[in-house]
Amino acid sequence: MNVREIMTTQVVCISDEANLKDAHSLMKSRNVRHLPVISEQDSRLVGILTHKKMVSTVMSLVTKYGSDALDRKERAQTVATIMDKDYQHLTADEPLSIVVEYFIENKLGCLPVIDASGHVQGIVTSSDFVKLCAKLLKL
């Protein structure tokens, strides 16, 4: 099996120029924990914003400025300033045997799937592997 067989293709992405408030709202409304961040200029993947990183940043803002200033501070901070720029990615043809080992060894929650030009094709999450396990257990 390869990545293409389990990846989610309807990926919720966010622009690197969006603000933290936009990301917070998008994660909540779309019920996602990982947002591939794409360049406003060429739509290529430039980073990953995780729910964990976003919550950490929000908590830091609340601690530093208070809850009354949170909305204003979230709007003032761009996704590009907090996204993970040092991320791993996949191609759709990579074998799942390699990917699952990477997930286990690095304790990641997601890996974006990109094409040769760096555009997002999909995303593989730990939930995708749980769904695969459930499917295989029913066989």
Rank of each mutant, 00 (worst) to 15 (best):
residue 83 M to V: 15
residue 24 H to G: 03
residue 61 L to N: 00
residue 32 V to G: 02
residue 47 G to W: 10
residue 70 L to Y: 07
residue 71 D to A: 10
residue 45 L to K: 06
residue 61 L to P: 00
residue 89 H to Y: 11
residue 47 G to A: 09
residue 34 H to P: 00
residue 41 Q to N: 07
residue 69 A to C: 08
residue 75 R to K: 15
residue 31 N to I: 00
residue 62 V to Y: 02
residue 31 N to E: 00
residue 87 Y to W: 09
residue 40 E to H: 06
residue 38 I to K: 13
residue 54 M to V: 14
residue 56 S to F: 12
residue 65 Y to N: 11
residue 77 Q to N: 06
residue 68 D to R: 15
residue 44 R to K: 15
residue 46 V to L: 05
residue 55 V to P: 00
residue 25 S to F: 07
residue 46 V to K: 10
residue 63 T to Y: 02
residue 20 L to A: 07
residue 52 K to S: 12
residue 21 K to G: 01
residue 43 S to R: 13
residue 72 R to T: 10
residue 77 Q to W: 06
residue 37 V to Q: 08
residue 83 M to W: 11
residue 25 S to A: 10
residue 42 D to S: 05
residue 21 K to R: 14
residue 82 I to C: 14
residue 45 L to T: 05
residue 70 L to K: 09
residue 28 K to H: 05
residue 24 H to E: 03
residue 61 L to A: 02
residue 80 A to C: 06
residue 27 M to C: 05
residue 89 H to E: 03
residue 89 H to S: 09
residue 74 E to C: 15
residue 59 M to K: 03
residue 73 K to T: 06
residue 81 T to H: 13
residue 49 L to H: 08
residue 72 R to L: 07
residue 51 H to G: 05
residue 72 R to W: 03
residue 31 N to V: 01
residue 67 S to P: 00
residue 44 R to L: 07
residue 40 E to L: 07
residue 46 V to M: 05
residue 48 I to L: 14
residue 46 V to D: 02
residue 53 K to G: 10
residue 88 Q to E: 06
residue 62 V to P: 00
residue 44 R to F: 10
residue 74 E to F: 13
residue 19 N to H: 12
residue 54 M to W: 10
residue 29 S to T: 04
residue 89 H to A: 08
residue 22 D to C: 05
residue 68 D to E: 07
residue 67 S to A: 09
residue 63 T to L: 05
residue 23 A to E: 01
residue 30 R to K: 10
residue 76 A to Q: 11
residue 82 I to W: 07
residue 68 D to N: 13
residue 31 N to G: 00
residue 20 L to W: 03
residue 62 V to S: 01
residue 38 I to G: 14
residue 78 T to I: 04
residue 34 H to V: 07
residue 33 R to A: 03
residue 63 T to E: 01
residue 80 A to W: 02
residue 59 M to L: 06
residue 88 Q to R: 10
residue 25 S to H: 04
residue 34 H to S: 04
residue 58 V to F: 01
residue 51 H to A: 06
residue 53 K to R: 15
residue 75 R to F: 12
residue 77 Q to M: 15
residue 46 V to Q: 01
residue 42 D to C: 04
residue 56 S to D: 12
residue 37 V to M: 12
residue 48 I to D: 03
residue 38 I to V: 15
residue 24 H to R: 11
residue 17 E to P: 01
residue 64 K to C: 07
residue 60 S to P: 00
residue 44 R to T: 15
residue 86 D to Q: 14
residue 50 T to I: 06
residue 74 E to K: 15
residue 84 D to L: 11
residue 59 M to Y: 02
residue 73 K to Y: 02
residue 45 L to Y: 04
residue 35 L to R: 12
residue 53 K to L: 13
residue 45 L to A: 11
residue 44 R to V: 06
residue 55 V to M: 09
